[in-house]
């Protein structure tokens, strides 16, 4: 398996990358290469040019930006996991990233790459949707910010334009009464999940008074389950009720490791597993 021929451009700055991308429809961005390079080698895609953005400086910043935690697109998963600010302000991200692949892949794979790629089985897109994150993209017409909810359109399809690249993700800083809970079920550690859930919880004392549920590895993009969340708030955990609700709300798509029926079951179970963490 060898990639088809392509040309290679090492971008020196963001504008440089944008310019090439605007000119060549078949050029693609190369960040950590952990998803792109296997696809090229299997000849699932054969772009004309790889625009390597990994050498652009300053794109891997992690900082507080007003009410947001900003993570630069080029911050690698390993880098994010070791960051002090993340540990203090968004520790759930570290737990989540522990479930993303293996150390060797995390050393190269980038935050922006995972967000931009939009794999429906990936953890970070679901996290971005669950936390109402903003995805910052830069293009010929300057920067714009896209709500994560509006970013994911379908299978590997995002709201990003041809000339744009993701430069960072802004996660709203967590409030006192807020918790981000996460759980997934995998056949093997580090694999993409059979089903996973990120819950954004607002609680007063021990009582959940607001909840949003976003699933990954269930359909063609991060799947929000707002009706089911509401049902839970009203009636608590009732397996069959919640299962029925999820079934009407999400179009579960089976894969090699789990049928749609299995995913529906796991999605229902995950609500219990996730909210049990609140008590713990």
């Amino acid at each position: 398996m060898k990639a088809a021929d392509f040309s290679y451009h090492e971008a020196t700055n963001i504008q440089d990358a944008i310019n090439i991308k605007a000119k060549d429809e078949e050029a693609v961005i190369l960040a950590g290469g952990q998803s792109l390079l296997p696809a090229l080698n299997m000849r699932l895609s054969s772009p004309s040019c790889l625009i390597d953005i990994s050498k652009i400086s300053g794109l891997d910043d992690i900082k507080i930006d007003g009410d947001y935690l900003f993570i630069g697109a080029l911050a690698t998963h390993s880098h994010v996991m070791k960051n002090e600010l993340v540990l203090k302000r968004m520790p759930c991200l570290i737990d989540i990233l522990k479930m993303v692949a293996h150390p060797a892949i995390r050393n190269k794979g980038t935050h922006g790459g995972s967000i931009a790629y939009g794999d429906p089985a990936a953890e970070l897109p679901a996290l971005a949707v669950a936390t109402n994150a903003e995805i910052i993209v830069s293009g010929q017409n300057g920067d714009r910010s896209i709500h994560a909810k509006d970013f994911y359109l379908g299978l590997f399809e995002t709201a990003i334009n041809q000339d744009e690249i993701v430069i960072g993700i802004k996660y709203p800083l967590l409030k006192q009464e807020q918790a981000i809970l996460f759980e997934e079920v995998c056949r093997r550690h580090g694999d993409y999940a059979m089903a996973g859930l990120i819950a954004n919880v607002n609680k007063i004392g021990n009582k959940v008074n607001d909840l949003s549920l976003v699933y990954f590895a269930t359909g063609d993009k991060p799947d929000s389950a707002d009706k089911t969340a509401k049902l839970y708030l009203e009636n608590g955990y009732d397996y069959s009720n919640l299962k029925n609700s999820l079934n009407s709300e999400i179009d579960f798509a089976g894969d090699l490791n789990s049928s749609s029926e299995m995913k529906l079951h796991l999605a229902t179970i995950l609500i219990k597993k996730v909210l049990n963490k609140l008590e713990a």
Binding site: P38, M42, R187, R188, H189, G190, D191, Y192, L256, N257
Partner: peptide, 16 residues
Amino acid sequence: MQNATMADYLVPMAYE
């Protein structure tokens, strides 16, 4: 054959 890659054909790894 549906799972002819190392990502889809599951062999046990250290964790397993």
